[in-house]
């Protein structure tokens, strides 16, 4: 009997060692997943795709019925805003033309704002909600690569954490991970730069840290990506400031940002590829730091 017990204890110890080794292996910053992982992800991605179609059809129909109830009120509001919109549109058009003209004059072709989008559908979400991740149905075959920005029509939602041939995992901005940072700007008369890192999931607010202490930040000013991270294009909307606090040593400020997208209700996303190449690999900037 003692011998039998020892065998089991040994097995337990060995498996704990394997466990620690595996965790260590997967926490490392990895350029690419190993092929068994890629194979598993592609296979389950395919199955998820098959199941997702009827399910999303049904939820779409139910959602449509719900929307129908509010149509009348919404329509009134939208009509009121239509005039405003036409005015804004002509202004934007005008500014765009002027911008292009000036660019032509300067012979400056690089633009951090330019990007090419790839449409994708969300086919799954990480059920254990510690790591907020989505699975989308586009992968390397469609040009999706690690670290690309992922947006919805409302703004930035996250970045591609890993891509396989036919699927990709998207890490949401709300996920708590030290490596998950985005360089951002608070718009206003006095632009303030900072890093989006961390998420207060009780209040559903993003934290923008490392803003210099002397910057005056107004509430309700918009926050966009700066494009200085090396991978993200400039000008993707992140959210708006709701609160500002000075950090504990008084050297920096932290802004609390209400995200413009709902991280919980995402069905269709766009993966965006910036047209200007980033800096060389060694110094890929904030998005890769740590």
């Amino acid at each position: 009997m003692p011998q039998f017990f020892n065998k089991k204890l040994l097995l337990l110890l060995v498996s704990i060692i394997v466990l620690v080794a595996l965790i260590g292996f997967s926490l490392r910053e990895r350029e690419e997943l190993t092929w068994p992982e890629q194979f598993l992800k592609d296979t389950t991605g395919w199955v998820g795709n098959v199941f997702n179609k009827p399910v999303s059809g049904i939820t779409g129909f139910v959602g449509g019925l719900k929307d129908l109830q509010h149509t009348y009120d919404e329509n009134k509001k939208l009509k009121a805003r239509l005039d405003e919109y036409v005015l804004l549109k002509t202004q934007v058009q005008d500014l765009k033309e002027e911008n292009e003209e000036l660019r032509d004059n300067l012979k400056k072709e690089d633009d951090l704002r330019k990007y090419s989008p790839t449409q994708a559908t969300v086919i799954g979400r990480n059920p254990d909600r510690w790591h907020e991740m989505l699975t989308i149905n586009k992968g390397k075959r469609n040009g999706v690569e690690k670290n690309m920005a992922v947006i919805t029509s409302n703004g930035l939602v996250g970045k591609v954490k890993s891509a396989t041939d036919f699927t990709a995992s998207v890490q949401l901005l709300s996920s708590i991970d030290k490596a998950n940072r985005v360089s951002a700007i608070v718009q206003g008369d006095d632009k303030a730069y900072g890093l989006i890192e961390g998420f207060d999931d009780k209040k559903n607010l993003l934290l923008m840290k490392r803003i210099p202490y002397d910057k005056k930040i107004k509430k309700n000013s918009l926050v966009i990506t700066s494009g200085y991270g090396g991978i993200f294009p400039k000008g993707l909307l992140i959210g708006k400031v709701v609160d500002v606090k000075v950090d504990q040593y008084g050297l920096n400020q932290t802004a609390y940002i209400e995200p413009s997208t709902d991280f919980y209700d995402i069905n269709n996303v766009m993966v965006v590829q910036r047209e200007v190449d980033g800096v060389p690999k060694e110094s890929e900037g904030e998005d890769e730091a740590e």
């Binding site: 199955v47 990480n126 059920p127 699975t135 919980y264």
Partner: peptide, 28 residues
Amino acid sequence: LVFFVFESIFAQMFAGDAFGADKILVPH
């Protein structure tokens, strides 16, 4: 396999505030 995939789809469908915004329901 069905249970495995269903968990993910469930999380995707009910991730929102179907049960109150600050509650997190994990399907096991």
